[in-house]
Design a protein around this nucleic acid. Structure first.
Lengths: 206, 206
DNA sequence: GTTGAAATTAGTACGAA
DNA sequence: TTCGTACTAATTTCAAC
């Protein structure tokens, strides 16, 4: 399976290599993200395909890596980690490897992403009290040579957390390549982009 | 919210109301977050308890809300949503209700958190191309009266994403309430906290 | 809280459309 | 490919300890 030539229709989940996802695949993913423990038999019924087909597609999605894993969503507050904070980190260039290595040693880090903009990375941590945030930043992060500066904000409330967004959720799946650039009704002054130019070289992941 | 008075022992996951989590509960959560589809029988074996016990605790964790749900982690790139961006939003005071309502109508938003600091909220979106980010910010977000300003950064790479952090991951679970404030060896100049005070001031600049 | 049964359900393999 | 069925293996439930 390789490059397809002149196709006309909107091809949902085609990313060069891997499985070509159709509507049924997305339906499966949709069911699975809201109920990761559903049996394949029940899944087949909800999607409207045979059990054998469901097993085939389920396995294909798993083998392909489209489904990375199944996990339990845990209530952090009940689990004892009621404090969530974001730490924006400026990383010294060419020390990304060290930064990443140190991150792996910090269990309180739930998420880390490399970003454009003013900072180079954003990490999200879960701890049990605010003092730990301080300890985390000063004792651990600031001690890493790769870390040039940090900026910390607290998360006061998590308004929404969707179990992974799918293209099938989006209203208009087929988009025009470059829409009419005349947003006369939009107050552009409200908006500000912080692009790669301003937040330069996070790209160089070493 | 019930304040607990003079407590002595360090009780891992006690949050006033709900289940009191012990080491076995955390072990269960630990297994479940890395394999949400494991059978309870296999779970019991891995945790080292009987099946009946595993069923009881499993149900209790679910009923209690400590386990919020089970979900499939999906590869966004393979699913056709290769672009991830963060949008920091400044919200007009007393228009939060509207803001939240509008958020619910945006399927490309995966996560939204209320934060301290310069902005009021951070939202993470997943879309298929960069043009959609622009469309999202200008056509949808900027059109909401509650939105005063936005700032957008792109996520270039997601370095790590842990399936929910647990207190049992942390090395020192028992912490001293207020540690010795003498970080002589820590370069404090590196660090900067952005608290609610500073953030609130930023709100009023209209 | 544990073990060991029965009942149910899940997963596999196969031929047919 | 997909479906339907039969077969096998595993899980869940329920009982007594």
């Amino acid at each position: 399976m390789s490059r397809e030539g002149g196709e006309s229709g909107p091809r949902p989940g085609r990313i060069g290599i891997g499985l070509e996802l159709d509507a049924v695949h997305f339906k499966i993913l949709d069911v699975l993200r809201e109920n990761g423990r559903i049996s394949v038999a029940a899944l087949a019924e909800r999607v409207g395909i045979s059990r054998a087909n469901a097993y085939t597609r389920f396995e294909a999605l798993r083998a392909d890596g489209t489904i990375k894993r199944f996990t339990a969503e845990i209530d952090h507050v009940r689990a004892g980690l009621g404090i969530t904070a974001l730490i924006f980190v400026t990383v010294r260039q060419q020390m990304w490897r060290q930064f990443r290595a140190e991150l792996a040693r910090m269990p309180e880090v739930e998420y880390c992403a490399i970003t454009t903009g003013q900072h180079d990375a954003m990490i999200q941590i879960r701890v049990s009290d605010v003092a730990e945030v301080h300890a985390m930043v000063t004792e651990r992060l600031a001690g890493i040579p790769a870390v040039k500066a940090t900026e910390t904000v607290f998360i006061l409330d998590e308004v929404l957390k969707r179990p992974y967004v799918l293209p099938s959720d989006h209203p208009r799946q087929q988009r025009r390549p470059a829409p009419d650039p005349s947003p006369a009704d939009v107050p552009l002054g409200k908006m500000r982009f912080v692009g790669a130019a301003e937040g330069r070289a996070a790209l160089r992941k070493e």
